[in-house]
Amino acid sequence: MMKSKLTLSGAAGNNGSYKWLALALVRALLVILCVMTAVFFLIRIVPGDPAKMILGEYSTPEALKNMHHTLGLDLSLWDQFTRFVKLLFTQGDTGNSIIAGTSTRELIAERAPVTLLLIVIASVLAIIVALLLATVAATHKDKLLDHLIRIIPAVTLGMPVFWVGILFILFFSVRLGWFPVGGIGEGWSGTLHSLVLPAVTIAFSQIPTLVRSLRAQMLEVLESEFVVTLHAAGIPSRVILFKHVLRNSALPTLMLLGVNVSYLIGGTLVVEQVFGIKGIGSLLFTSISNRDFPVIQGIALYCALAVVIISLLIEIISGWLDPRTKGKS
């Protein structure tokens, strides 16, 4: 009898987990569909004629009409949207670039590796520095080190990421000569060396919120009853800190990092422009100035897709680490 109850309980738990995962996937799909629709219509609301961008200011009405037909701009908005959705789901593309004439997917895939590498380096730096600062602040509560570290979020949160990048260039590149002013070096070593300063700039904008969140969570765990019991049992403080406190404090910070993914990607695109890195960011700004809406749509959709996938993965990891978080945004 007891065995049958345990089996039923396990089956119910599995069904609940599958239901939660299915709902998370449905939410992610709905977000992607909403972004896809918004990107399509917002781009077409912005003033400007792509055909005139291609042919020039003094193009004839007949030439403009032919170019509109070539680009499919003479169709109704619904027909354009239907073609856009069909192309996106069948080929994973938003069409050919108006300026370059090549596939948007190929243009983005060519620039994506540098941008992805920059995001990974910046994320790793932000997590490592946030862990160190939050740990020091939490273990030295209300002391000098804690007050100094708590000042960091108050000061740095108001600094625009592009302004921080310019300051870093002036000091570390122009004055000290430690890093290149911009661009990408040759080979793996040159690439990594040239991406250090941009990655630090991006991480600089993420560290304050992570430190503040992780410090608050660590203080809450340090003051909990089970930590007091572990100290009373004679377990070394270092073991308690790294094995129990950090483990129980990391989950809310992990969820916060998932929320900040969109800001991280957006900041990366801006920083690429500041440092002259030929990644997705520079492609986006060039496409905006040229009114190349297929490329703009492609970048917006791929970035939104990346944000949704990363947020979904963090939600799944959080639910796996702590089942109580399932279904919570």
Rank of each mutant, 00 (worst) to 15 (best):
S103N: 11
S103C: 10
T104F: 08
T104D: 05
T104K: 01
R105A: 13
E106N: 14
L107R: 02
I108Y: 13
I108R: 01
A109G: 00
E110T: 11
E110F: 11
E110D: 14
E110C: 06
P113W: 11
P113D: 10
P113R: 14
P113Q: 12
V114P: 02
V114Q: 01
T115R: 12
T115H: 13
T115Y: 09
T115S: 15
L116S: 04
L117E: 10
V120Y: 09
V120H: 08
V120D: 06
V120C: 14
A122E: 00
S123Q: 08
V124I: 15
L125M: 15
L125E: 05
A126R: 04
A126Q: 02
I128H: 13
V129F: 12
A130S: 15
A130W: 07
A130R: 05
L131Y: 09
L131E: 02
L131K: 01
L132R: 05
L133V: 14
A134D: 08
A134P: 02
A134I: 00
T135D: 03
T135G: 15
A137M: 08
A137D: 07
T139C: 02
T139F: 08
H140D: 01
H140S: 09
K141T: 11
K141A: 11
D142L: 09
K143Y: 06
L144A: 15
L144N: 09
L144S: 15
L145H: 09
L145I: 11
L145N: 06
L145C: 12
L145S: 15
L145Y: 11
D146H: 14
D146S: 12
H147E: 01
H147R: 14
L148C: 10
I149N: 09
I149H: 04
R150V: 00
I151F: 13
I151C: 09
I151K: 05
I151V: 14
I151R: 03
I152R: 01
I152S: 04
I152C: 01
P153D: 00
A154T: 06
A154S: 07
A154Y: 05
T156K: 05
L157F: 03
L157I: 14
G158T: 10
M159D: 04
V161D: 08
F162D: 03
F162S: 01
F162P: 01
W163I: 07
W163C: 00
V164I: 13
V164T: 05
G165K: 02
I166L: 10
F168A: 06
F168S: 03
I169M: 07
L170P: 04
L170R: 08
L170Q: 11
L170C: 06
F171T: 05
F172W: 07
F172V: 00
S173N: 07
S173V: 13
V174S: 03
V174F: 10
R175P: 01
R175S: 14
L176A: 10
L176H: 01
G177Y: 00
G177L: 01
G177T: 02
G177E: 01
W178F: 13
W178M: 12
F179V: 08
P180A: 06
V181W: 11
G182F: 02
G182N: 00
G182K: 00
I184G: 09
I184W: 13
G185Q: 06
G185R: 13
G185V: 13
E186D: 11
E186G: 08
E186V: 14
G187D: 03
G187N: 10
S189Y: 09
T191W: 07
L192T: 12
L192V: 15
